[in-house]
């Protein structure tokens, strides 16, 4: 009964969708979205168009999604029980322990690099933040064997970093409000945009990148470690 109903509903969804597709044809006659690529350099000083959109043109969306991560991480951090610590019951071999110890600095440096160079190369606060969080998580997985709760960072430190990053992000927006006339403004604030392609360019974009990177990194690490602890 339920299967028949489900088949009917999903079948009609597919049928309606395909009909719309056939009626629309190729999207060639649809109106093309505005192309940010060519104006990015002039407007923002960043040469990575995706980063420029995320942190300048549509920065409020980014603030919103960073808030989503923040909310999820704080809820999950409270949900997780404090006691359970060990994730694996097996002892890892020496090779893994030392191999990870060798690799971790590189992962973290790569993550930081992705954040800092987010406006001149592929990357940005989100991708770099995910790399940072993965290094934290790897550390927790590998070195918290055997019941000792030796996470790389205590939860409280992560929460401090996350909250401070959120504070910085919102405050950076207020700079634009008070000196440029618009919240989260970049070029309008009079901050020099720098020479496109160099590290010190893009006005506020690198700073927002760094704030987002720390927030995402700590937030995701909190989420994943809390889920482990569950």
């Amino acid at each position: 009964m339920r299967r028949t109903l489900a088949l009917l509903i999903s079948g009609s969804i597919v049928a309606l969708g395909v009909t719309t597709l056939m009626l629309t044809g190729t999207l060639s006659d649809a109106i093309r979205p505005v192309d940010y690529t060519l104006r990015t350099v002039r407007d923002t000083g960043a040469i990575n168009a995706v980063t420029a959109i995320l942190f300048d043109y549509r920065a409020l969306d980014t603030l919103g999604e960073a808030t989503v991560i923040f909310a999820a991480s704080s809820v999950l951090a409270f949900l997780a029980p404090r006691s359970s610590a060990s994730m694996l019951s097996v002892r890892l071999s020496m090779l893994i322990l030392y191999g990870i110890a060798f690799l971790l600095p590189f992962i973290m440096v790569f993550g930081f690099g992705t954040i800092v160079f987010g406006h001149v190369s592929p990357g940005g606060g989100f991708t770099g933040g995910v790399m940072l969080s993965s290094s934290v998580v790897i550390f927790a997985v590998v070195y918290s064997v055997g019941g000792q709760q030796s996470y790389v960072l205590p939860i409280l430190v992560k929460k401090y970093v996350e909250n401070a990053a959120m504070f910085v992000f919102v405050s950076l927006g207020f700079i634009g409000l008070f000196s440029g006339g618009a919240y989260l403004a970049n070029a309008l604030t009079g901050i020099p945009l720098g020479e496109p392609g160099s590290l010190l360019s893009g006005g506020l974009i690198p700073l927002l990148n760094i704030a987002t990177g720390f927030k995402v990194g700590m937030g995701l690490a909190l989420i994943i470690i809390s889920l482990f602890a569950e």
């Binding site: 969708g17 009909t19 009626l23 629309t24 649809a30 109106i31 979205p33």
Partner: peptide, 26 residues
């Protein structure tokens, strides 16, 4: 967005006449 290339509601409404009607309705 596919039909009108915009995300702002006012711009979408402005561009409705030139957009594929089936996609807008969907």
């Amino acid at each position: 967005f596919a039909a009108t290339g915009a995300l702002s509601l006012s711009v979408i409404v402005d561009r409705l006449p030139g957009a594929p009607p089936a996609l807008v309705a969907a």
